[in-house]
């Protein structure tokens, strides 16, 4: 039951983009087409989960025993950057079809603050390893959901006549604001 609450909270109540303001660059940047949005979303779910699990191990068995807690930021970003490189090389060799659909998004993910953000949130909330994995999958799914919905709306807007100054990024941000308002209704569902 705890895990169910954790999942619902991560996907809807504290949606990583719409309530926690993380990962906005890819959220605005890759939401022009639904297909691209799907690819990016799944890549984030995949990398965020692996990154959160590995950084949890790094924190617990490397940083804390050696009293190096202040190096958390630098250690985490290095782990994520090298992880992304490894995943890219592995997918290229082992699973070429998957690499074709996710490959172009992988380099974008290193600077996706959602990935580093999820890893740090897990540490600050002092989750266990299993909770970390569940939370990061759910957060990734939340990101995927928000991204695909925004992409679907923006596809519809292609044909609409919008004042010139609002075209592009401004309308995407205003749409995100309206989506965020809708997600606001979930506030208070979980503590």
């Amino acid at each position: 039951m705890d895990y169910f609450v954790l999942i619902i909270a991560a996907i809807f109540v504290n949606n990583i983009v719409l309530a926690q303001y993380l990962g906005n660059c890819p959220f605005i940047g890759t939401s022009k087409e639904t297909g691209v949005a799907m690819g990016m979303g799944f890549a984030v779910v995949f990398v965020a989960t692996m990154a959160a699990a590995i950084t949890w191990v790094v924190q617990r068995f490397l940083l804390v025993p050696n009293d190096l807690g202040y190096l958390q930021t630098i250690a985490f970003i290095l782990v994520i950057a090298s992880l992304v490189q490894f995943v890219e090389m592995f997918l290229k060799k082992a699973i070429p079809p998957l690499y074709k659909s996710l490959g172009i998004f992988l380099p974008l993910i290193t600077t996706n603050c959602a990935v580093l953000g999820i890893a740090i949130i897990c540490q600050r909330k002092q989750f266990s390893l299993l909770e970390t994995v569940v939370f990061s999958i759910a957060s990734g799914v939340g990101f995927l959901l928000a991204l695909v919905v925004l992409a679907a709306i923006r596809e519809r807007l292609e044909m609409a006549r919008i004042p010139q100054s609002i075209q592009g990024t401004p309308i995407a941000l205003i749409l995100a604001g309206l989506m965020s308002l809708a997600f606001f209704a979930f506030k208070g569902m979980t503590s």
Binding site: L18, Y21, I166, P170, L173, I174, A176, F184
Partner: peptide, 25 residues
């Protein structure tokens, strides 16, 4: 309160960008 919650952040930044574009044009 809308302004200090998440939706207000998105809308404010969006309108800010739009205003900047309008000024440039």
């Amino acid at each position: 309160t809308f302004m200090v919650e998440a939706p207000g952040a998105f809308v404010c930044l969006g309108l800010g960008l739009a205003g900047m574009n309008a000024l440039t044009n």
